[in-house]
Each structure stands twice: as structure tokens, then as C-alpha cells.
Design a protein around this nucleic acid. Structure first.
Lengths: 190, 190, 190, 190
DNA sequence: AATGAATGAGGCTTCATTCAT
DNA sequence: AATGAATGAAGCCTCATTCAT
């Protein structure tokens, strides 16, 4: 009745679809049913609803990390960032529900601190790009955390806004302008 | 036990405190108790929990609008925007729990669409500033909705990041750079 | 459908009947149904199944204490003890299910330690008789706790054995013989 | 991880340890895990949890019977009884968890009637001592069942009370006094 | 207008038991 | 004979909502 994947996979898929449509409030029973397994079976894999939430969060983050792949260090920093940006956007566009649910879990603080921390660890590659940018003196004088959040926020926005290709480029430029200092830009007052 | 405010006000205050600490999952009974009224009474004012959520959301948005006050149209557009930015930040700093709960209600989609729409209407003033900026050709080529979201996102970030005064200025500049075109900025490649 | 007592009373009665017949494993739902109230109502009075168990235990012990009344201190110690014995037995005979359930809760350790302690406090009168007997040098050389348990054990036995009046007297004598030293009894070794 | 005993034996041991610590509520899965077998295997040996309970009860009673051994009929009745008493106490002291679990199964009525009856049959030796005492006119005028219960009750008490050697003797005397008539004891009133 | 007891649907979780491998 | 994943009924408890007083 449901794809012949392994059970946890089927449960994740069902959870994604339901959480995306109705929020994380959806009952474990409904998730199990949608996954084509019994109520009890779900708890064989995720002993707690929280465990399901955490597991799903990590699953999605890992999926994203997979999509980001390795960064081409031969590129300029700006292009490295754009590479991450583009691939991330590609993932979100290819599997929008996955992206929305990941966002949902993150925003509502429903992924436990441990899960959030483990998820962060997956992005070490991307973080290194930021550090390199800092070393090159490109970045404005705000904490790296802040800049990372700035990037991600704008990425989220670009994703949800369904922009066309041209606009996507403008959106990326806007983000880049927001995090880099613009020494040569004269008279930026009205 | 609770200030002699009018009942709905007391309920809002209780809800803010509890939602801020424990999330919107808090039961109506607990809200009522914290407000010093019986659970039955709460339902006299808000026939539904959703009505309470919506009412609270509008209440908070109205509070914010109040804080934003009138915009000094004599100022440059940039300064008008900064005025809004600063007052908004002032409101969030003065009553952080209010800000957090407003954010919570918005993010989790728990404020009903109708409430969200009515809340938007409160910001007509601020929106007008954006329109004026557009008219003056300052803005990058993305929909106004998008830019409004860009502004608000970065504002939220600046609020939650607990920046010092210098950093706040940098954060505002970053935002401004992200929404305005920078014609004279030469060679923005690495 | 059920006597017009107050709710908690009705719940106690239902619990007694069901626990007596099927053990404390009986579901709260069944207790509520038998009490003529809804599932939820039970939890308005006893926020937890354990609270119900504890409450019931104390209820029964208080009932027993009531039945024991005041001890006639003009009587000899032996007669005072017999007075308690007889009244206790009377209570158990009059409401055997109450007695059995009290025993059940005690034996299975399902009354929480706090409840057990509070229940003990109800018997201060009876304990005083034992202390007086000790003072008079009537008792064998074992801790008072031990003797109290000896008495109660044998009382329980006398109750459950459904003895006739003559046998009841023999049973009491047996108990008395077990806790008192018998100075004049010559050579009780083989 | 678990001794290379036969499976049922290992299951019994695990059950004893777990039931002793957490009560009979412990799940069959946990018992199986502690016994080092899969949950499925447990049900190969005990088709039902009740069967496990009954089997364990009989196992423990048989173990006790073993410990009681043969009674030395050359001894006086009193000494024969004391021999049983002492050996029983020895068993309980040597393997306290076994004793406690046997008691637990008995008290909570969780050993099925059939199992209880079969267990009784194991004590035929001990019962014969009582019958002989009756024949010799030593016993008070109460049913043999009652006296057997009196003995066992007091034995349980002596076991759980952790008495020293002197007190153990007093406890045995108390028991003996409770079941035997004391013709020479003059004036046992106040 | 205020109260708070009553409701019952629904949520999460546990567990004895089955069965295909 | 052994395994362990799968099952689904049942348990405890929460809570938004109603309504008689």
C-alpha cells in the first residue's frame, strides 16, 4: 500500500507529508497509518514522538547536506557561497515538503537541542567557507553566527518566494550585499 | 492576585507569559487560572482557543503599531525606514515576551489567516514608506512583499541577537544594503 | 444510575467493588463508568490513578479508625486490646469488601509511602494501648512494630477465616498468647 | 552475558530479579532480554505470561520444598516444627529475592488457583507434622488450615523482620504459644 | 457576567502475543 | 528450536468546550 521502503523510511515519508500539511500536531497514529504500519510499529523505531521529530530532523538535514556535496575550493569565495546557495535552493525546490518540514521543526523549537546540535555539525563544510571569507576581510563586522543566520534567512525567503531565475540572482546579490562591506560604494544615503 | 485590569487584558497578559515560557500548547485552563478568572469566564470572552490566539495576535500587533507611531515624512526615506526599525526594536526590547509571542504565533501559523491579514492592515503606514522608496528608484528589483519580508526578517534577527549599539548600526546598514541597489559599487566579485 | 452521593464518594464505592473483584489492575475508565461519571471527571477528583489508590486507602483507613472509636481506658489492657480486636473484626465483617481492598492496597505496596504513613497516624490510639502493655511488662521481648504486625496479621486471619463465635475467642486467645510472656507456664521446651 | 543454564532456568532467574525489584508488572520483553533470549523464545517455553507466573511460582515452591528436606521424625513434635521453621527461614535468608517473589506471587493472587493448589501439594510432609501434633492433643481448637496459616504468617514476619538469633527464638516461641493450648498457664486474664 | 464541574474525544505509549524466517 | 519485527487493543491522562447555577 505504501512504497516498499524500509519501515523507518516509510514513516519519515508519511511524517513529512502530514507534518507539511497539518503541522507537527498530527498524531503518531495518523503517521503510522499513512506509513502503512501499525500504531505499535512506529514505536518500535521511534520510542517517543520526540524521537520521531528528532530523527526526522536529522534525516532531513542529512539529506540536505548530501545535496550540498563538496564545495569547489578553486572558486572565488563569492562563487563558493553561491554554489552552496544554489544547491540548497535546488534541494528545496526539488523536495519542497522536505524543506518546509525541516524549517517547521527548526522554527518551532520542536527538534530537541541535541538533535539541533547534531544537525549543525553536518554543515562544517559550509561554515568553513564563511570562515575563509572572514579571513579575506570581505565580511561586515558582525559575529559569524549572525551572518550565517542572515544567509540562511534570506535563502529561506528566496526559496519560499518562488522567484524566477532573474529574481533569484537579484536575491542572491541582495544577500551578498548584506553581509559584505561595500567600500567603494559612494554615498549610500538617500 | 492579578491586577484589576479588565478581564480580556488580564487574559492576554497571562497568555503572553505562559505562551512565552511553555509554548501555545498551554491549556486554556492554565491561562485562565494565571489570569485570575475561571476557565468558564475565559470562554465568555474568547469563544474558542483559536479566538484567543487570534485576539492575542492582533492585540500584540496593535501594540507594536502603537509603538511605531507616525513616521516623520520630512526625513529621507532611509531615515524614515531607520525610524521604523529603531522603534520596532525598541518595542521588542522593552517587552521581549510580547515580541517573542507575536513571533511564535506568526511562525507556527497558529494565527488564523484572517487574523494575519487584519494584522497586516495595521502596517499601512510602514508600507507606504516602502512604496515611496520604490517610487524613488532606490530599491532592487524584487516584489515589495519580498522586500518587506527581507526587512522584517533582518529586524527579527537584530532583535534576537542582542547586539550592542555599534552592531545594531551595522545590522541596519546590512539590511539597507540588501534592499537597495548599489549602482556605483564597482566589481563586486571576489 | 448510581446513588446520589458526592462524586468522590461514588468513585470510591465503585473502585472498592471493582478492585475487590478484579484487583487494582482495573482501568480508571471502568471505575468511572461504574461510578456513573465520565472518564474525565474521575481525573478532576484524582489527578492520577495513584492518587485514587492513595485516596481510597486513606478513606478506608479513616473508616476503620472511625469504627474503632475511643478505647475504654478503664478496662484491663487485655480487654482494651480485645475491644479493638472486636471492633476491627466488626468493621471487616460489616463491610468485607472494604476490608479486602484495604488489605489489597496495603499488601501490594500500591498505596504510596506517603499514604501509608498518613494512614499509620490514624492509629495512634491503638498504638498507645500497646505501649501501655509494654510498660506493664506483659509483652514478649520483640520490637513493638513486630508485635503490632503479629496482632494485625492474626486479626486478618481471623477475619478471613469466617470463624464462629467460639472460634473467634480461641483465635483472640492464640494471638494474646503469642504476644505475651507466659511466666507460669512451666517447661515450654519439648 | 547470562550463565549457560537451560533457557527456562535463565528465564526464571531473570524474572525473579526483575519481579523482585519492579513487581510482576515487568514486561515479558524485559524478562527475556535479562535472560539473554529473544522475546519470542520466552513464549516457546511459557505460552502465556500467566504460564510464566505459574511456572515460576511452582519453581520457587519446589525449591523451598527441596530446602525443607525430610523431617526427622525422631524429634518431638515441637522440634519437628522448629526444624521446618528453621530450614524455611534458612532458605528465605539464603535467597531473599526468591522468597520475596514467592510471597509476591502468592499475595497478589497472581499465581493461578491451579498453580496454588499444586504448590500446596508439595508440603505434604510438613502438613503431616501438623496432623501428628493434632493427634497428640497439643493444638488449640481451630481448623488445621487456620493453624497452618498462623504458622506461615508468623514465619513470614520473622523472615522479613531481620531478627537476631535471640529474637528468632522468641519469635518461634511466640508462634508455638499461639497454636498450642497452655493448660498450666494460670490466670491468663489481665 | 461569572463560575467551575462535567464531559468525552483523542493523544501517547506499553505490552502480550503471533508468525514468517 | 530461536528469532525479533509486527501487531492492535488497552491504559492513563489532557483539554477545549458546554452548561446549570
Amino acid at each position: 500500500m505504501v512504497s516498499m521502503k524500509h519501515k523507518p523510511e516509510a514513516i519519515f515519508d508519511a511524517a513529512i507529508a502530514l507534518f507539511d500539511e497539518h503541522g507537527v500536531g498530527v498524531s503518531t497514529a495518523k503517521v503510522a497509518a499513512a506509513a502503512g504500519v501499525s500504531n505499535g510499529t512506529l514505536f518500535n523505531y521511534f520510542p517517543t514522538k520526540q524521537a520521531l521529530l528528532d530523527g526526522l530532523y536529522l534525516h532531513l538535514k542529512a539529506e540536505l547536506t548530501q545535496s550540498l556535496g563538496d564545495i569547489d575550493e578553486a572558486l572565488s569565495i563569492r562563487d563558493q557561497v553561491e554554489q552552496v546557495w544554489t544547491r540548497w535552493l535546488g534541494w528545496a525546490t526539488a523536495t519542497p515538503s522536505h524543506h518546509r518540514v525541516a524549517r517547521l521543526l527548526h522554527e518551532s523549537g520542536l527538534a530537541s537541542p541535541e538533535a539541533a546540535e547534531r544537525a549543525m555539525a553536518l554543515f562544517s563544510n559550509s561554515q568553513r567557507v564563511l570562515e575563509e571569507a572572514r579571513r579575506q576581510g570581505l565580511l561586515i563586522d558582525l559575529p559569524d553566527d549572525y551572518l550565517a543566520a542572515l544567509i540562511q534567512q534570506q535563502l529561506e525567503l528566496a526559496i519560499t518566494a518562488h522567484l524566477d531565475t532573474t529574481q533569484q540572482q537579484v536575491a542572491f546579490d541582495a544577500m551578498w550585499n548584506s553581509i559584505t562591506s561595500a567600500p567603494t560604494k559612494a554615498g549610500n544615503n538617500t
